[in-house]
Design a protein around this nucleic acid. Sequence first.
DNA 1: CGAATGTGTGAGAACGATACCACATCATTC
DNA 2: GAATGATGTGGTATCGTTCTCACACATTCG
Lengths: 327, 327
Amino acid sequence: MTTINDIAKLANVSRSTVSRHLNKNGYVSQDAQVRIDKVIKETGYLPSQSAQSLRTKKTGVIGVILPKISTETASRVVEGINQVLQENNYQMLLTQTLLNKEKEIEFIPLLQARHVDGIILLATNTDDALVNEIKKAKVPVVVLGQDMPETTSIQYPDYDATKNMVNYMIEQGYRRISFIGVPEDDPAVGITRKKAYLDTLKEHQLPVKKEWIAYGDFSIPSGYEAMKTIMGAKQKPDAVFVVTDNMAVGAMQYLKENNLQLPQDMGIATTGVSRLSKYIEPILATIDFQNEQAGMAITKLLMEQLVKTDKTKKITHTYRRLPGNSL
Amino acid sequence: MTTINDIAKLANVSRSTVSRHLNKNGYVSQDAQVRIDKVIKETGYLPSQSAQSLRTKKTGVIGVILPKISTETASRVVEGINQVLQENNYQMLLTQTLLNKEKEIEFIPLLQARHVDGIILLATNTDDALVNEIKKAKVPVVVLGQDMPETTSIQYPDYDATKNMVNYMIEQGYRRISFIGVPEDDPAVGITRKKAYLDTLKEHQLPVKKEWIAYGDFSIPSGYEAMKTIMGAKQKPDAVFVVTDNMAVGAMQYLKENNLQLPQDMGIATTGVSRLSKYIEPILATIDFQNEQAGMAITKLLMEQLVKTDKTKKITHTYRRLPGNSL
DNA sequence: CGAATGTGTGAGAACGATACCACATCATTC
DNA sequence: GAATGATGTGGTATCGTTCTCACACATTCG
């Protein structure tokens, strides 16, 4: 590997001059500049990032912590993140927790040892230990998906969107609306969305039955099982709201297998829009959280934090309701 | 940030001793070890990766170059890659080319400037400039998805798998089999799969019609359009083989919109299995290239290369045919 | 005309780690 | 009791940058 010293020697200047030219600070004569440029082109020299970052404490790398990359939601968020990072000449160090909470915490110091300039966390919980680790962090940490105390974060509009959809279901004439959720470890999805569901029913004086509420773990099969549980109730619901699209697909599968006509016999609605969901039958009524944009937005927030570490900011992302024909 | 010097001072030993202890080479007394460990725990010290890599020329980071993360294939491969990397205590620097060939080439030196220990390339072409850049690389580069000359690589069994599926279609009684492919820039998908299709038909003395062949660009809409083009032919085919599942979904969409019963009026088969494809109707007959495993396999190959830079290796990955009910 | 400013350059000290080397101490062996 | 080898330790060079300083020379200005 050629180093800055080689360049200096070949261009007949000192190391300092090359550095000044490269970083465009300080004076370098026209003459020296062309000589340096020439040599750099000839040798294909690229500065050693390790040395640079040892010196400057900046790496141009952003750490991203997410549960699992091979989910459509996560990969779309990453797509958005990557886009903004690339515009700003940053690169992305990706880590997966595979839903292991310990890892979520461990990765923060680990990424800092790698001297990432900032961290983007797609959070699945808001445990104290995690919040603590974030507070201790020496680099800006921004959070997407949960309302993390004292942290710059973007939340999905879990409450409003859910309410909007459940309201819409009621407008469509459904009165016995069941619910498939997830455990409360994940506050945004597990608590907020459920609360919105309950609140909306209550506002309309509609019945809330315990047997109409079941839980899954984000996976397609768990949606299938939850639907099965609910359909075991004495009084059958006439619709179901499922908190994630994957589980909705599972639920739908169960209903179809049991010869229920959608949406005539049963309405179904969800949040989250996967690329293929337009092509399943019926097309799911869903909430689009526009994950790419969310990824871009959170990254832009981080970029801001990188220049001026100002106060923490809370933003709620937008959403769109997509009609589908499952209601 | 606490440095090794702080640790040394606090533990009353020299910097060297701390380093020796940390790297478990050379002698350190029991006594010193416990003192050092204690101080490290108290301070939460983590060695600076920049300094380490400046010194050792190793970063523990692997660069991954891929076209687009938010595709199911790519994200599953990454899932596999990540799994093996994590086992081996490596981290992953992710870059997207967004199908821009120049970037595919640029990223190789760029990642090297970041001192990645190795590069995994999910290649979409085999251009000379790219091959050249790989040859010039100072770190091991392994390639997944294309047969790259003089490079350690894993290819998908494009030829055999396609042949297997087309043969199966013929067994099922289809005789007028059409084809939706992609441009030849991507040799593995654009050339090899098409050749397998043509060869198989020829072996069975079945007609190959120009009007039965159309091309898309990997996207769902392009599959829709290609199917439309083919169905414009005077003599209609009785089946279609689509080289990627996304395009197959588009093709299927077109057929359904035009009231063709699948598989009675028209058989459809493809390669690539997306998470949701089991839930669309009919279930696509497809080839599963087992992307996670491919990702794991290519990463293991890279790990091998990292210890002993031996000769280049060529491996062809395995596949499974999934029946579905679209044939 | 001397001082102040602008332009251009290189020497050398960091940054935080690793690794080679020299040296000290102690136990073992012939 | 001298030689040998294992154990333990610290000094110092080094990796490839950036950055502060000191200094040299030109030009401008009061």
